[in-house]
Write a protein that binds this DNA or RNA. Structure first.
Lengths: 337, 337
DNA sequence: CAAAATTGCTTAACCGGTTAAGTAACTTAA
DNA sequence: TTAAGTTACTTAACCGGTTAAGCAATTTTG
C-alpha cells in the first residue's frame, strides 16, 4: 500500500520538495510557482495518485485533525447515537474520530485520555466516568480543548453539554404521584457522578414537593459491575418487601432490565407497579407495556458537543460554555396514566 | 498541552537523542547504555512525565497502531456492538480504533477508506456498503490487511466474517409455514449486497422446500434512503392488498418499524400477521408481542473480525480466511408458535 | 544603464521520533 | 606491547511532510 511521496514527485520532475508541497497545498500562485510547473506537478500527482501522508502532515503542522471520543461503552445506544452525531459533524470539517470505552472505570479513563493525548488528538469529548478530577484538571491546566457530555462536574468549570437531571427525575416521580402512586421506589446506579446524584436529588425534591416522607429503603443503588444480580435483589426488595407501587429508574438500561424482571415475576405493569425510565431506547414504545420515559434530545446533545469542541479547537476560545438540555416526559402506558 | 520531547531530555542531560530513545524503549541494556545513565534518563523522564509523540513514532516506524472501522451507521446496535468488541480486543494489543459511518453510500465508503489509508491505519474492518469492488480490489492488490464483516463479496476472495444469510432466512420462512401460514411476505432493503441477496434466496428456497409458488408481489424492496415511507407502502401492499398472514423482515430495523406499523393499524400480531426478524435488538423480547428472530452471534463476529485482522497485520499472512457464522431461531410469540 | 523589483525556484531547518554506522576511551588477549 | 574487543556513547540519515529565508535570472523602473 506504499504510495508515492512528495520527494518522489520532486525527484521525478527535477524540482524541490518545497515547490511540490506548495503546489499540492494550492499555494502555488501565492508562492509564485509558474503555471507550467504547477500543471506538471498536478498532472504527475494525479497520474500516480499521490496522497499526502497524514501522519507526517500532522506532525509537521502540530495538528492531527483527530478528535477523541471517550464513553463508558460505545455499544450503549445513547453513546452510540452521540458518537454518530459527533462523527458526522467532525467529518464535515475534516476531522476523524477515535473512540474508546472506559467501562465506567476511572483508571481506564485516565489511561485512555493519556493515550489519546499521545496520539495528538486536537480535542476530546468525554462522557466522564466516576469523578476523574485529576485528569480533567490537567486538561484544563494544559488549556487543552475538551467537552464533557452527558455528565457534569459541578465543582470544576468546564465546557459541558448535559441534562437537567434533577428536574427530569422530579417530573417523573411527580407524574407517578399524580397518577395516584403512594410508594415510589427509585433505582439508580452506584456511580460517583454528579449527574447521577442529581437524579437522586430530583427524586427527593419530588417527594418534598408532594409532602411525602423520604424513605431510604426504597432507594436502591445498583452496582455497575454486577448489574444483573444487584438489580434483581433491588427489585425484589422494592416489590416484595417494600411493596412499592411505582419505580423510577435512573437509566434506560436499568428500566429495561427492571421491566424484564417484573414481567418474569408476573407483576403487572402498571397496575401493580408503575414505572418510568430516565432516558429511552429504541423500541420503548413497542414494549409491553410501552415505557414512559424522561426524554432528552440526544442528537442535539451530540451536535452541541462537537460544535462546542470544534469551536474551542479552531478559535481557541478560553471561556467555558455550559449547555444544559431540558428533559421532557414521554408518557406511555407503563406509568399508569 | 505541550509535553517534553526526546530532544529536551537529551539536552537537559547532555546526551544524544539516540541514547534517550534506546532507554525509553527499554533497549538500554541491549544497546550498552550504562546503568547510571539509564537511571538518570528514566528519572528525568518520569519527573517531567515524558510521553512519546505517537505521531512521530508511527511515522518513523511505519506503523500507526490504529485500525479503521467502517460501518454503515455506528448508532445501529449491531454495528455498535461489533465496534465495542473490536475496540476491546484492539486495545489489549495497543491499537486504537478510528471509525466512520458510510450511510450505506459506496461513494462515502470509498472516500472514508482513502482517508483512513491516508492516516496510515494498519488495517481496516469494513462492513461494506453496496458493492465497492474497486476499493476492495485496490486493497487486495496493495496487500493491505482488511476484513469484511457482516457482509460478503461472493465474487472476490477476502478475509470475511459473515453469516449464513440464506439458511437463516430459510429457517425463518419455514417456521412460519410450519406454523400454518400460507401467504408469507418478505420485506428486504434495496441494497446491492450479496448478503441481502442471499436472504432473498433463503426466502425462495424455503418456498421451494415447502412446495409453495414464488410470488413477486409479496416481496418488497424498501429503499434505504426513504425507509419510512417506502416501508409504509410495502407493508400496506402486503397486508391490505396481498393479505399475507406472515412477514419475514430482512433486518432488525425493518422488523421493528414493521411491527410499529402493524400496531398502528391495529393489525393483530401474530393472529392476523405473524412476523419474524432477521437479527434482533435489545428489548425484542419485551415487545408486544415478543419478536421472533433469526439470531446470530454478534459478539463472536466482532471478536473473530479483530482476531483475523490483527493476525493479518502482525503475521502478514496472505491466505484469506472465511468465517461464516450459523444463525439460530429465537422463537417468541410474534411468529405464532 | 544601473538599481530595484519580480519571478521561479531551492536550501535547509523543523516536527519528534528510530536506527545503522561510527568513534573515542578503556580493557583484554596473544 | 600491540592488536583486538568492549564499553558507552554520538553522528547523521530517515520517516514524509511544512516553511522561513535565500538566491540567481529576468524584468521593470527612474
Amino acid at each position: 500500500m506504499k504510495s508515492i511521496s512528495l520527494k518522489d514527485i520532486a525527484i521525478a520532475l527535477n524540482l524541490s520538495k518545497t515547490t511540490v508541497s506548495y503546489v499540492m497545498n494550492d499555494r502555488g500562485d501565492e508562492k509564485r510557482v509558474s503555471k507550467e510547473t504547477q500543471d506538471r506537478i498536478k498532472a504527475y500527482a494525479e497520474a500516480h495518485s499521490y496522497k499526502p501522508n497524514q501522519l507526517a502532515r500532522s506532525l509537521s503542522l502540530g495538528k492531527s485533525n483527530m478528535i477523541g471520543l471517550i464513553v463508558p461503552n460505545i455499544s450503549d445506544s445513547f453513546f452510540a447515537q452521540i458518537a454518530r452525531r459527533i462523527e458526522k459533524k467532525a467529518e464535515k470539517l475534516g476531522y476523524n474520530v477515535v473512540f474508546s470505552s472506559t467501562g465506567e472505570s476511572p483508571e481506564r479513563e485516565s489511561k485512555i485520555i493519556q493515550s489519546m493525548l499521545d496520539r495528538q488528538v486536537d480535542g476530546l469529548i468525554i462522557v466522564s466516568s466516576e469523578k476523574n478530577h485529576d485528569d480533567i484538571l490537567k486538561l484544563k491546566k494544559g488549556n487543552f480543548p475538551f467537552v464533557i457530555v452527558g455528565r457534569k462536574y459541578t465543582d470544576i468549570e468546564t465546557n459541558v453539554v448535559a441534562l437537567e437531571d434533577k428536574e427530569g427525575v422530579t417530573s417523573a416521580v411527580e407524574l407517578l404521584i399524580d397518577n395516584g402512586r403512594k410508594h415510589i421506589g427509585f433505582i439508580t446506579i452506584s456511580l460517583d457522578l454528579d449527574s447521577i446524584k442529581d437524579r437522586l436529588k430530583g427524586y427527593k425534591e419530588a417527594l418534598k414537593n408532594k409532602d411525602i416522607a423520604y424513605n431510604t429503603n426504597v432507594v436502591k443503588h445498583v452496582t455497575y459491575n454486577d448489574v444483573e444480580a444487584s438489580l434483581k435483589e433491588a427489585m425484589h426488595e422494592l416489590v416484595q418487601q417494600e411493596k412499592v407501587d411505582g419505580i423510577v429508574f435512573a437509566t434506560h438500561y436499568l428500566a429495561e432490565e427492571g421491566l424484564r424482571l417484573l414481567k418474569l415475576n408476573n407483576i403487572n405493569v402498571p397496575e401493580e407497579v408503575a414505572i418510568v425510565s430516565f432516558g429511552k431506547d429504541r423500541g420503548f414504545d413497542l414494549f409491553d407495556p410501552p415505557l414512559t420515559s424522561v426524554d432528552f434530545p440526544i442528537i442535539e446533545m451530540g451536535d452541541a458537543a462537537v460544535d462546542l469542541l470544534l469551536d474551542t479547537i479552531e478559535n481557541r476560545t478560553n471561556n467555558y460554555k455550559n449547555i444544559i438540555m431540558k428533559t421532557k416526559l414521554d408518557i406511555k402506558q407503563s406509568c399508569g396514566s
